[in-house]
């Protein structure tokens, strides 16, 4: 049961939770939470792809004990890590953008409820 694909499926289920919150919830902060959860799941998926199971996972940092050739044979994939590292910080920037939008919406309509905002606007 604990196969290697089940990790991927659980991770996609985590992403599905975010999509569910994004579609089904009416509170705007719940929608923001959904976006944040999707972001976590995608980042985690990219890192999961780069993991190497043989032996112990070695971080891609060379030191006195591990030389260059040994690092290439043992260490995990550094490329998804480099992409995810910037993506996490950009996620913080977009979270700030979404929070700013939510604050401005609240200032105008005095509620966080999306369907209420739709009704008031119409």
């Amino acid at each position: 049961m604990l196969s290697h694909t089940s990790l991927y499926i659980l991770d996609i289920a985590l992403m599905g939770m975010g999509i569910y919150a994004l579609i089904a919830k009416r509170h705007i902060i719940k929608k923001i939470i959904g976006v944040v959860i999707i972001e976590y799941a995608i980042n985690l998926f990219l890192i999961l792809i780069g993991y190497r199971a043989e032996g112990v996972a070695v971080a891609p940092i060379q030191d006195a004990e591990i030389g260059a050739t040994e690092l290439a044979a043992k260490a995990v994939d550094p490329l998804p890590q480099a992409l995810v590292l910037t993506s996490i910080v950009i996620g913080l920037g977009t979270l700030a953008l979404m929070a700013a939008l939510a604050i401005k919406l609240y200032e105008k309509y005095k509620t966080f409820d999306m369907s209420e905002i739709n009704r008031l606007r119409g």
Partner: peptide, 30 residues
Amino acid sequence: FGEPLMRVSRRYLSGTAAETGAVNAVAGVI
């Protein structure tokens, strides 16, 4: 899971200290 395709990453891992001078391969790639 556990067996990534590392065509370009092997090159990055073995060459990072010699070509960029950075020991941390992630910093070298970024």
